Simulated assay, not measured.
Amino acid sequence: MNHLGDANLRTWTLRVTALLAADIRDQLAWLGERELETKDIVEEVKLVCRVSEGLAERGAFAPEDQRHLRAIGRRIGEIDATHRVGLWGNALTADSAWDDVRSLARRFLLTRLGDWHQPLPRLARPPVGDH
């Protein structure tokens, strides 16, 4: 097991899952004025779920954790192309799939950490360009 690399990937997985588990008002506040595309969030979550498979094989996640992450990945995969278009903030309020994902993410965090209320990830600041 690559302890440093796996630890970083595990932390990334927990942060993304914390964002998915958050109350919708907290998700919208986290987004603020950011215009994140739904398709980008879907792809990020799908990547997290794929990476978690390798982490589980190396012991960074328990089998029960992996079952929860697979369920999240399956539900994300069921979001059809028409519901992946547009801003994620709009999708959060319009598509009930995100309620399902929220519930699944909460179950994972409850199992893994004992509480689904976790700090939300910090977004990287946009680069400041020369004007």
Rank of each mutant, 00 (worst) to 15 (best):
H3F: 11
L4R: 11
D6G: 15
N8C: 08
L9F: 10
R10F: 02
W12F: 14
L14K: 12
R15S: 12
A18P: 03
L19G: 08
A21Q: 10
A22C: 11
I24V: 14
I24H: 08
R25V: 14
R25T: 10
R25Y: 06
R25I: 09
D26E: 15
L28D: 01
L28C: 02
A29T: 11
L31F: 04
E35A: 15
E35I: 05
E35D: 12
L36P: 02
L36M: 11
I41G: 04
V42L: 09
E43M: 12
E44S: 14
V45D: 03
V45L: 08
L47G: 04
V48D: 00
C49S: 13
R50M: 07
V51N: 07
G54E: 07
R58K: 05
E64M: 10
D65C: 15
Q66I: 04
L69D: 03
L69E: 02
A71D: 00
I72Y: 02
G73H: 07
G73E: 07
R74D: 06
R74N: 02
I76A: 03
G77N: 06
H83N: 12
L87H: 00
G89S: 02
N90I: 03
T93P: 01
D95G: 02
A97R: 08
D99R: 06
R102I: 02
S103V: 01
S103M: 01
S103Y: 00
R106D: 12
R107T: 10
L110F: 09
T111C: 14
L113D: 12
G114V: 07
D115Y: 10
L120M: 03
L120A: 01
R122V: 12
R122E: 12
R122P: 01
P126S: 14
P127T: 12
V128R: 15
G129F: 13
H131F: 13
